[in-house]
C-alpha cells in the first residue's frame, strides 16, 4: 500500500530542505522519541514488577507502554508537521503535549511509588 495519498493530504507537506541548519527541530523530535522509548521501558519494568503483586496492577504498566507508543508515533508526525510553521515564522510552542507528558508521567510514577510502598509494607 502506498503512503503517498495520505502524505499528500496533509496540511504541511515535507519540504525539499530543512529550515534550520542547526537542526534544532530534528534534535527536539529525537528528544521526544527518546522520551517515548524511556516511557515504554519504564512501563515494561512496571509490568514485570506488578505481575508478582496483582494481575490488575499490570494495567497501569500496559497503559504506560501504550502511551509511550502513541507518543512515539505522534513525535514523528509532529516533526513533519512543524516544517511548514517554522518556515512561516510561527512559534512551535505546544503546551498540550508537555502538559500531557508531565501529567501522565507524574501519574504513572505516583502509582508505581504507591504500589512499591504497599509491596514493601505488606512484605510481598
Amino acid at each position: 500500500m502506498s503512503l503517498s495519498p495520505w502524505l499528500a493530504g496533509r496540511p504541511h507537506s515535507r519540504p525539499g530542505q530543512v529550515h534550520d541548519t542547526m537542526l534544532q527541530h530534528e534534535r527536539t523530535a529525537l528528544a521526544w522519541e527518546r522520551t517515548a522509548f524511556a516511557a515504554i521501558v519504564a512501563g515494561l519494568l512496571f509490568i514485570r514488577f506488578a505481575t508478582a503483586l496483582h494481575p490488575l496492577l499490570t494495567l497501569i504498566g500496559f497503559a504506560q507502554v501504550f502511551f509511550g507508543g502513541g507518543l512515539l508515533i505522534w513525535a514523528g508526525y509532529h516533526y513533519d508537521e512543524l516544517h511548514g510553521p517554522l518556515r512561516a515564522g510561527q512559534s512551535p510552542v505546544h503546551p498540550r503535549a508537555t502538559r500531557a507528558v508531565g501529567w501522565v508521567t507524574t501519574g504513572f510514577i505516583g502509582g508505581a511509588t504507591l504500589a512499591a510502598t504497599a509491596a514493601v509494607i505488606l512484605g510481598l
Binding site: 527541530h25 527518546r34 524511556a38 519494568l45 514488577f49 507528558v101 508505581a112
Partner: peptide
C-alpha cells in the same frame, strides 16, 4: 523558536531523568 525548542528539550530531559530513576527504583 530555537529558545522554545531548547526549553522543550530540557523539559523532555527532565522527564527522561524521572523515568530512568523510576526504572532504577522498580529494578
Amino acid at each position: 523558536y530555537r529558545f522554545t525548542l531548547a526549553n522543550e528539550r530540557t523539559f523532555l530531559a527532565w522527564i527522561r531523568t524521572s523515568l530512568a530513576l523510576a526504572a532504577g527504583g522498580l529494578g
